[in-house]
Write a protein that binds this DNA or RNA. Sequence first.
DNA 1: TCTTTAAAAGGACATTTGTCCCACTTAGAA
DNA 2: TTCTAAGTGGGACAAATGTCCTTTTAAAGA
Lengths: 189, 189
Amino acid sequence: MIRTNNELLEYIHSIQKRSSVSIGNMAFKAKELILEQDRRYNTVYVIKKGIAKCFITDENGKEFIQEFLGEGMEFGELEVFSEKYTICSVSAVSKLEVFTFSHGVFNHLLETDSRFNQIIMNALADKIRYKAPRHSYQHSYPIEDNLIRLKESFPEFIDVLPKKDIANYIGITARSLNRALKELQEKWK
Amino acid sequence: MIRTNNELLEYIHSIQKRSSVSIGNMAFKAKELILEQDRRYNTVYVIKKGIAKCFITDENGKEFIQEFLGEGMEFGELEVFSEKYTICSVSAVSKLEVFTFSHGVFNHLLETDSRFNQIIMNALADKIRYKAPRHSYQHSYPIEDNLIRLKESFPEFIDVLPKKDIANYIGITARSLNRALKELQEKWK
DNA sequence: TCTTTAAAAGGACATTTGTCCCACTTAGAA
DNA sequence: TTCTAAGTGGGACAAATGTCCTTTTAAAGA
């Protein structure tokens, strides 16, 4: 449920050791908004520590969470490849520490470091792979099944994440989430 | 609704003209199954002509369509970057003509042709970008709105695609689709 | 042409989920 | 401390969607 990419994180550390490429550092407080959808940015972020959420807000103000990003996950990278706007807002869920890359540096690495290129390519592939079953599963299974799945992949999710975020992640209302949680509790007794 | 990637298609043509890289050709009949989920393949496909669907089937036999692939769209490419299995089945919706690349050739192009690398990278980014709003929209809006959207992006979709495919694409049952279509017809009078 | 099979349409009912509330708790600000 | 605002939990009802089944239509094969 909270995605990570250790390979990328480690590789960035190794880049820092051996070369002088300019990689920045930033920190954000919990709940701070980092990227806002429909805008244009020039920085790629990779999470060093903490959890962020990537979400879309529609015209009615409903938000739908695409994924929770954990250590080693990147965001803002799609804008390197085209001139398009960001589709997702990103905000910190907990205290957050990140690496930052300017588009120039990021591109330079992509072109000169084939291992880096490969890792990024694979990270993109993973994001595609990840989204497919998630959404199809959520459509065709009752809420309860989805919650059980979440608990398997991230047992403490109820305590760590606000209820509203969980609901927005599954794509349901807070009310429905509560109903399902209650029924689950009774079944587990 | 039916996605295309002209840039990639044109670039493949240009590769063929100037180099002798081994790119294959294949054709499939309508409804033919090309890739089956949870298997491992060694070929990347790029659509020259026709429409394919990329879908996931769950344990109960329900299928959920991820995207409809048109000219210039690639599939089977995610398996180049890792040893994982295919998540999606792919089958021909109409008669289909494709280019094929062995993993070896595909990788060779990625490593030696930086423009090709860029185009593929961008194609991956597009797939990510595309999926995000699609699923969130479908969750939070009534079926009718989704149909209106489809009609805008692909007016003939009702005549070209089987009803069941449309339903599976939106993530609803055929019954619900019919209901919504009927109500829409009456409103448009 | 007739026959068989699959796709499409829709009725009746059950179930799920959402909407709109209100009450209770908790954390932080005054 | 007291007060406010945000988060949480849940009742009652409405609306949307699914399930099951039957009928109709269209298409394909013999």
